[in-house]
Nucleic acid binder design. Sequence first.
DNA 1: GTGCCGGTTTGCACTCAGTGCCACTTTGGC
DNA 2: GCCAAAGTGGCACTGAGTGCAAACCGGCAC
Lengths: 228, 228
Amino acid sequence: MTHESAAPVEGLRERHRRRTAADLEEAALGLFCERGFDAVTIEDIAAAADVSRRTFFRYFASKEDVILSDHPRRLDELQAALDRRPADEPALTALRHAIMSMADTYEEEREHMLRRFSLMTATPALEARSLCLQRNWETSVTEMLAARMGVDPSRDLRPGVVAATTMAAMRVATANWLAGGGRVELPVIVATALDLLDGGLQAAASPPAPRRRSAPARPAPAARVRAL
Amino acid sequence: MTHESAAPVEGLRERHRRRTAADLEEAALGLFCERGFDAVTIEDIAAAADVSRRTFFRYFASKEDVILSDHPRRLDELQAALDRRPADEPALTALRHAIMSMADTYEEEREHMLRRFSLMTATPALEARSLCLQRNWETSVTEMLAARMGVDPSRDLRPGVVAATTMAAMRVATANWLAGGGRVELPVIVATALDLLDGGLQAAASPPAPRRRSAPARPAPAARVRAL
DNA sequence: GTGCCGGTTTGCACTCAGTGCCACTTTGGC
DNA sequence: GCCAAAGTGGCACTGAGTGCAAACCGGCAC
């Protein structure tokens, strides 16, 4: 094919813009990991990307946003994944598939994601902003679920609860992924967490031991992060 | 009784300190509600409480903290409520009771809480900080649940998932409470949300209509916020 | 009452995030 | 080549948050 569909020419201007954004992002991530988020000023980042302080703010609204700039894009992907599911599929199943495809994406970018997550858990400001963005996802997901279920999300608690708890499970799973250094595949952890949720909390929390698939007393060392 | 137990004399100094903190909090809440969080400077708050800007920071670490200063105390109360439950009670039941007693507390402070929540939802900075503090609760609750269940929370996903999803349900419930202007009692909404969660999401999300207690086509107008 | 100790307040100066404004340069279309 | 639009850089400004040192005051011993 001789031409792209949505990018007629992709002029020098646009290319330069992307380049600068990528430079800033890379410079910031490097400096943050090296010295810690709070010990890096925007001046430092701008200098490392050969750009002025003022220009930094033309690309990112805040220091936090350099790390979290992909959130809107990821929400779009999540929505797209949800929209791709057949309309007659149960809402929860569709959501589960969408979440799992997001987990797959994270696993593919493994190293990058692990670096970012570890930065976030170490930096209250980043964590706060990230949680806020995740809550925005929740709102969108709630509306999509409500549409699928044919109910009004402001009257019916169900879409909101399903969205919020599912994403909470995803959050716990990624935290566990990070804590284990990414040695267990994220999709496996996420699937486990979602299973716990779907089975009802009662079943998950009450007995001293769940069903550890008729496990021996000492679980296999390679799978020590998994619960089921 | 002639004397208090933990406050031997409660000197003038201590009283003055409490007074100043309360003044700052009240002044801040008033100004925020009047003009919006972002349009109020710390200078303004300090002036309204007859105190210097510098002194404000001796009482609160940030502008957000004036509104969220009670979070640590509430976590203590939650922990205390959880500790009061019998040790042999299932972890989920104990957590549910603790959460419900927190919901009761919120309902008692109704007006104050509704003002605060509406401020938070209107102010990204406040929402972000609040979510971050709630995530801290999650960590504590996770550890308490893990202790009750006799498992290691870093190896077993269950305590984390139970804690995170339960608190997510609480969050959705309070948002719904606020959206309804507090006309439905918070404990009722929270109980509904927790029921949804305990019953398993599958049961909650799949059928076009749940069990609307063999409801008529048009639900009763007085209870329109409730789902079950 | 006097005087001292230690906690409290305050003003000052400083760093840094974030924003508005304007002049200057570069790019892409003609 | 020329022009409009987009991008960049410098400057100045507000406001959050912190360190420091001087002034202040409640509690206590004498």
